[in-house]
Design a protein around this nucleic acid. Structure first.
Length: 517
RNA sequence: GCCCCGUUAGUCUAGUCAGGUCAAGAAUGCGGCCCUUUCGAGGCCGUGGCACGGGUUCAAAUCCCGUACGGGGCACCA
């Protein structure tokens, strides 16, 4: 048998061998399974501090915790980490909930850490009784110094009896006078284990609890307790807390509480955009940006106002995953994912920037119907046509006398005269064949029945470390009249311009924000 | 300074725990073609990467050691 015959024979008995396996198109990225997860038993939490508006980084964390709770048919708890009365503000509790709802993230239970003060006191008292915590009267500077040097302070050797009595005194002492510290390990390489503070005096009203409490737990203490008491099985959070795992587990061991499984990932950022409250707040205070909802910001509100959808944010989270490297994603990724979401549902309208006049001297007045979407049946819009049109400066400058063009979706014109800011043309043969049509240059137009549209174009806030002074620009032009029927929040496409979200409608016209091309 | 963690194409990620099937697979970007009365979407093709240096091994993106770079922590913030 020759090779060829052999091949033919083989093909008869094993045809699959000769066909290239069709490449399997991968679907959207999926997050990996959760370690140790059992259906119906997963409990996660969303732990915002009500001290500002969430940004996309919080959005990622919220989504991970929400995603796994839903995936495993478990429970997700919204828990406000509000144990610093000086930082929390009432407005943020509600703002965070609104942002979560907008993100299409819901939750099964809601609670504030500040509702559990008595529980923290009870556990604190237990630690004192066990001799595992002591009241320290050193000032914070001294505490810090001794921790750095791995040295005990004198307070560490207080008797249990002394501590019990000082714990009582603490209630009425002035701020800074005493703190309750855990007996950890002063020689630990993990510096957070060196007798960390568990509770301290804060002389400031709390937005919810008012003046009811003066002794407040620090994060590690409250969090260690809550994650266990709430039945949290999985903690998905960013890695600035890595070193606290040992401490929080130690606290729980002492108090005979169960440890959750902790999964960490790095903080995530967007190129050119500040991705932390610490950086965003001063920009607002110094009026570099207009507020938490400035479309240049990657706050949830900024993204919403720009026209980024919650689904796109979910997709970004799935794309990045629970990465331990430090992702700095490009806007183009967000834009691309968002485009896939909004393209099918965005109605199309005509808009021309920096408009110039185009008169068609022999035009017929008529009303035409144009599809709101080229592929999907989303209905039509009507446009009244006269002999006057507006075209964008971009198209205008490339047009010369004698040229034949097509007003898109309307008819062909022959240019008979050009001036510095006006073109005259004549209507030409309507019977363009499909083939001819594909060759002819098409331009965007707006009829004489028009509306003023200004488009805010958000740019990059930072270039390297410096603030870009030209991060916001405005493009003005005319849009077709039906744009005035849109509502604030609608996302549409201005054909051959880009996707925009309607930001404001008033007597002066329409303001839209450019979402992306 | 000390202690943790990380480093795969321009960006992002799969693969690393259980070394060979990885001369590394997606996404995004960029380039080209097709489609389209949009410069959008969609389809096809292409481009481009294991931080560096040693070691272990028949075999290293994968294990070990070191270096560089990046991030985090060392609060009476969270």
């Amino acid at each position: 048998m020759s090779n060829k015959e052999l091949e033919n024979k083989l093909e008869e008995v094993y045809p699959e061998y000769f066909y290239q396996k069709p490449k399997e198109k991968e679907g959207p990225k999926k997050l990996p399974p959760l370690q140790g997860a059992e259906i119906g038993k997963v409990v996660t939490r969303l732990p915002p501090e009500p001290n500002g508006y969430p940004h996309i980084g919080h959005g990622m964390s919220f989504y991970f915790n929400y995603y796994y709770a839903r995936k495993y048919d478990g429970k997700v708890i919204l828990r406000f980490d509000d144990t610093n009365p000086k930082k929390e503000k009432l407005e943020y509790y509600d703002a965070i909930k609104q942002d979560l709802k907008w993100l299409k993230i819901d939750w099964d239970e809601e609670k504030n850490m500040s509702d559990d003060m008595d529980l923290y006191y009870k556990y604190a008292s237990d630690l004192i009784d066990m001799g595992k915590a002591y009241i320290c009267s050193c000032d914070s500077e001294n505490v810090s110094k001794l921790r750095y040097e791995s040295k005990d302070c004198l307070c560490a050797s207080n008797s249990v009896k002394d501590n019990i009595s000082l714990w009582k005194d603490m209630e009425s002492a002035e701020e800074g006078r005493y703190s309750l510290r855990l007996k950890g390990d002063m020689s630990s390489k993990n510096t957070v284990m060196r007798d960390p503070t568990m509770l301290r005096i804060v002389d400031h009203p709390h937005p919810i609890q008012g003046d009811k409490y003066r002794i407040w737990p620090v994060y590690d203490f409250a969090c260690a307790i809550e994650d266990s008491v709430l039945g949290v099985t999985h903690v998905l959070r960013s890695n600035e807390f890595t070193l606290r795992i040992e401490l929080q587990n130690y606290i729980r061991d002492l108090l005979n509480l169960r440890n959750p499984k902790i999964i960490e990932y790095s903080r995530f950022s967007v190129k050119g955009a500040p991705t932390s409250k610490r950086l965003i707040r001063p920009l607002i205070e110094e009026k570099v940006v207009s507020g938490w909802d400035d479309p240049r910001l990657v706050t949830i509100r900024g993204l919403k106002r720009r026209g980024i959808t919650p689904e796109a944010i979910h997709m970004v989270a799935e794309e990045i995953g629970l990465s331990k490297s430090e992702p700095e994603i490009d806007w183009s990724l967000i834009e691309s994912l968002n485009r896939k979401i909004i393209d099918p549902s965005s109605n199309r309208y005509y808009f021309v920037s920096e408009p110039k006049i185009l008169d068609v001297i022999d035009a017929s007045y008529q009303t035409i119907n144009l599809k709101l979407h080229p592929e999907f049946d989303r209905g039509f819009r009507n446009i009244d046509i006269t002999g006057r049109f507006y075209i964008s400066y971009e198209d205008f400058k490339s047009i010369s006398k004698g040229q034949i063009l097509r007003l898109k979706d309307l008819y062909n014109i022959f240019v008979i005269h050009t001036e510095s800011n006006q073109i005259k043309a004549m209507h030409t043969d309507e019977q363009s064949s499909k083939d001819e049509l594909s060759k002819i240059k098409k331009i965007q137009w707006v009829s004489d029945k028009k509306i003023d549209v200004s488009i805010i174009v958000p740019g990059t806030l930072y270039e390297g470390d410096t603030i870009n002074p030209n991060s916001l620009s405005t493009i003005t032009g005319y849009g077709e009249l039906d744009i005035s029927k849109l509502n604030e929040g609608d996302i549409v496409q201005f054909e051959r311009f880009g996707f925009v979200r309607i930001d404001k409608i008033d007597s002066k016209g329409i303001t839209a924000i450019l979402t992306h091309k």
